[in-house]
Amino acid sequence: MPVAPPRRTLLLNASLEPLCVVSVHRAVVLVLTGKAMVLETDGRLLHSERTAVPVPLVMCLVRYVHVPHRRTVPPTRRTVLQRDEHRCAYCGGGADTVDHVQPRSRGGRHEWSNVVAACARCNHRKADRLLGELGWELAFIPRAPRGVAALFAATVRTDPSWSAYLVA
């Protein structure tokens, strides 16, 4: 049974800084128009009547593109669990949910500095109380994740061949 080509390709700037993820179709168009070159491939080829193009997993632009600003990643359940490596901020066990350190019912905001990963047991025990009321302490100060890797981790499922290009 033939293996389907990947659906997404990591696109890097000419400086090898990650820019975005594009469809394989868009990636092939960029290669055929001379705007990008393939850096990583899985060895397979995409054939047309007159040409063959390697299946691009990672590619970079030929010319540098200035990017004026970086988007920030919102604190969703997936991104918070990923930041905290699926470990409960209170007991250190496996986390499956998120908790607001200062509960929203007490004026806490839904922002990176107030949201941590938590196991269901700790989340239920804490409920809408403050850490001081329970005598609990956080093992770390919650912060927004930094780097391009955080942006890609939050938005798409990454290919293993991308890891060398997504270092923070």
Rank of each mutant, 00 (worst) to 15 (best):
V53Y: 03
L166E: 02
E49Y: 11
N114C: 04
Q82S: 14
R44F: 08
P2M: 09
H110V: 01
L138N: 09
L166G: 05
R78Y: 00
Y90E: 08
P2A: 14
D159V: 02
L57M: 13
V3G: 10
A153F: 01
R104V: 15
T158C: 13
V98E: 06
R63H: 12
H124I: 11
V24H: 02
V38C: 11
P75M: 05
A120R: 12
T158V: 09
L61A: 04
D84N: 07
G93S: 10
V21T: 14
R125Y: 13
E85Y: 04
P5G: 12
A144V: 02
R71I: 10
A149V: 00
T155P: 00
A150P: 03
V156D: 09
A127V: 02
L138M: 08
L130C: 02
G34K: 10
W112H: 01
Y64Q: 10
A150I: 00
Y90V: 07
W136K: 08
V67F: 02
H47R: 15
A4T: 14
V148M: 08
S23N: 11
R87H: 13
L134S: 10
R106L: 14
K35F: 11
C122H: 03
R129S: 15
H100A: 10
S161W: 03
E85Q: 14
A89F: 03
E85W: 04
V80Y: 02
H86C: 01
L12E: 06
G132W: 01
L16N: 15
R63A: 12
L32G: 05
P68L: 07
A95H: 02
T76G: 07
R106P: 04
R87M: 06
